[in-house]
Amino acid sequence: MIIDPVTLIVALITVATPVLLAAIGELVVEKSGVLNLGVEGMMIMGAVCGFIAAHESGSPTLAFVAGMAGGAALSVIFAVLTQLLMANQVASGLALTLFGLGLAALLGVGYPGQPIPDVAKPLPEAIREIEVIGPILFSHDLVTYLAIALVVAVWLVLTRTRAGLILRAVGESHDAAHALGYKVVRIRFLAILFGGACAGLGGAFLSVIRVENWVEGMTAGAGWIALALVVFASWKPWRVLLGAWLFGGIAALQLRLQAAEVGVPVALLDASPYLVTIVVLVVISSDRRRASMNAPAALGRIFHASS
């Protein structure tokens, strides 16, 4: 059994990227006080739109733009339902996932196995081939670096800027924010769109770079794992990064263990990313102080200005 730690770390970072993107987007949505359970649906829409754009246009850039647009377009439905029509957020999020999975499958008919262009790596080959640190640090795709930069940006905006303060105020108490003159619905609408675009980009990364194919239902619960990561991270951007890499590590390791045919049942390996996510959720949630410390106080509550 040979598992090379360097390739494992490279794989881990690649596997973690879609979940990381979706989770950091959802973190912003939840910080604004909205629980969008439709991450899985927005991701799969991003995956299919990105793949179709990559195949039809041959441009990876357009593919990622299309993926973001697909995810954001779906999130508009959620935003209209929950922000303008005051619908239940749990039910609307579930509806988004069910509809997104159906619509993505419909759009993707005839696309599985179609060729898409290779995506060039951003850094020169000389740097990528340095021993050990070359593959680990410099061999990734632009979107992977972008995802990590996004974590830093979200952290900075949330903790260091006025805009971040307003977003958090809306998420902590929409009535107080409203009384101070902030446009609660508009801010939440924008946060939901941002979350949709992030999930869509994550989906497009999955289909265009990681799998290089479109397969119905290919997100396989990644959106739900992203939701779990936000809870795991206690709504802190840095911990989302940590959680995504932990998940990526398990997922990459189990694939290698399956290939190496060790004595562990395949079903257990297949299920291991989900089981580990559950275990981690339990550990985090059972610590009463830590779990509730950072949860936005108005999370999931409906805001209606006249009430």
Binding site: L81, N88, S92, L98, G100, G102, V109
Partner: peptide, 20 residues
């Protein structure tokens, strides 16, 4: 295509929530 009916069912839930 087979998935069109799944999208159709999802739409039903959207309209229901909107009309609420």
């Amino acid at each position: 295509p087979a998935p069109s009916i799944q999208a159709f069912q999802g739409m039903l839930l959207f309209f229901l929530l909107a009309i609420d």
